[in-house]
Nucleic acid binder design. Structure first.
Lengths: 281, 281
DNA sequence: TTGCAATATGAAAATTATTTTCTTATTATG
DNA sequence: CATAATAAGAAAATAATTTTCATATTGCAA
């Protein structure tokens, strides 16, 4: 009896009837709707009988509709933790830590939500096929660019990054259309980063950016834009939350790339096997 | 209308009648009981009328008993996120990102839980009173050390960090008993970091470390040890989650330090004011 | 102290919501 | 094609919740 909320519904899905799948689709698509609805409202909306909804609940392991609603509630509502509470002068060190950690957690959650599926795929494919991948960032973002370089150089992708703004610009001007340039810019509007982007576009290289502002000049002009979503807070000395989200995106791209490389290596082995088999016929 | 689950019940408490307080006490004491009980079971258990329970729910801001149960559910049950699911070869880029992000979120949550209140205070006080604060890390942790340096140098604390292992060791040997050395080591057992710690202890400086393993040599020998708590996973090229937790701890310490500095500046102004007032008597 | 108004409470009635049962339709298999 | 199993809807039965009514209690003013 695997009662696992939304995940449980997904795991039962292949064994459901057409009507039951219709109910499952509705719940999976907008679970926040049903927890405040009666079984009759759901059934009317889907043009199924009340009894069918009740049976669906039992089918996936619950005592009934009420039990399903209680089980789903935690997945659609966050526990009542501190709602974006700002750090105040009365806070001791642990309370400061708690507020900062919660803010960083929210940023990761929000970023995951706005992260585009297509953009992730495109970015991974560009990095996979790049003759040369260069990572750029200014200020705190330069740390992320260096980190990306350390990561990707291990994947076999020819990766580069530069700790110095001048070196970044010089290398950018040497790129060509088979290269990929990856820019980290939280605001998407810094003069240095924008100027660099113009240089890169002149070189013909493909461009990827991670920015917190989709409508920013950089966010609008790159080939593939990935977005972070973080809070504005008063005590922030800098955008650490945004950088944490950037690091996580890079980690995801890196893992995707090495998995794809494994796939390619596998496919090459298959090709060699087939060629050998053909010569033996 | 402040509907705030358990917190909402607490805030209404002073204004409740005796019977209503009895209901509130029951819910506050064991909220996990009522979410699976009918209103009649609760009323019988407390020797009150069903109607009294229903009215209580309305009194504290809900539409009725059902709405209260749905609202309480998230506070007593954790969301059913993906339970430590490993990345598999079938995962597309978005699924990879989701698993990595969830893992990072869990690390932040777990780290916040194990973070010691006293240790945080001690670390902040040591940094505040340090004649000189030096940050050390090897491999990926060196990035965190450099980040800490960039942050603390802005606070006015005399802060230093070194991108090179050799420079780290040389500078460590120059410390004295009025200095603070801050070591980042995920395993707490790397030879380089341990050797560095022995050098620092000889110098008499106070030592702080952030490590994922409290029982490790470094975790056991420093004056103040702060702990991260992260998952072991198969796909991890490196401990990014751990580094994210380390960065968050540093951010919290940094904010605490600058707030304390503000307090001190305030206290100094008071002292000067008092001294002037005394000369005028 | 007494009377009155407001509030709280329980029991019963009314209403709503959910689940089960019965019947029919559909699908899969031999 | 016939039969058995399963799915689905409508209706009936049951359960749960809410509202109403009557009574009790408390607080306040005269």
């Amino acid at each position: 009896m695997a009662q696992q909320g939304l995940a449980g519904i997904r795991s039962h899905y292949p064994r459901l009837s057409d009507k039951e799948k219709k109910i499952a689709d509705f719940i999976l698509k907008q679970p926040e709707t049903i927890v405040h609805q009666t079984i009759s409202q759901v059934a009317d909306h889907l043009d199924v009988a009340d009894a069918t909804v009740s049976r669906f609940c039992k089918r996936i392991g619950y005592k009934g509709y009420q039990a399903l609603k209680i089980a789903l509630a935690p997945e659609i509502m966050a526990p009542n933790d501190m709602l974006h509470e700002e750090i105040t002068d009365n806070d001791d060190a642990k309370m400061v830590a708690e507020k900062i950690f919660q803010s960083n957690i929210r940023t990761l959650e929000n970023t995951l939500q706005v992260l585009g599926e297509n953009e992730l795929e495109q970015a991974a494919e560009l990095l996979l096929s790049a003759r040369r991948a260069e990572f750029y960032g200014f200020g705190g973002s330069n740390m992320v660019a260096m980190d990306a370089y350390h990561k990707f150089v291990r994947s076999g992708v020819p990766a580069f990054a530069f700790p110095d703004a001048h070196l970044q610009l010089m290398s950018a001007s040497q790129l060509s259309s088979e290269d990929v340039a990856f820019i980290f810019s939280h605001s998407g509007a810094s003069k240095d980063a924008y100027q660099l982007l113009q240089t890169i576009k002149k070189s013909g290289a493909k461009t990827i950016a991670i920015t917190g502002f989709p409508k920013s000049p950089i966010g609008q002009q790159v080939d593939v834009a990935l977005h972070t979503s973080s809070e504005e807070t008063a005590y922030r000395s800098e955008a650490l939350a945004s950088r944490i989200a950037q690091l996580s995106i890079i980690d995801a791209l890196y893992v995707t790339v090495i998995m794809r490389q494994k796939d390619k290596a596998q496919a090459s082995v298959e090709k060699v096997r087939n060629a050998i088999a053909a010569t033996k016929m």
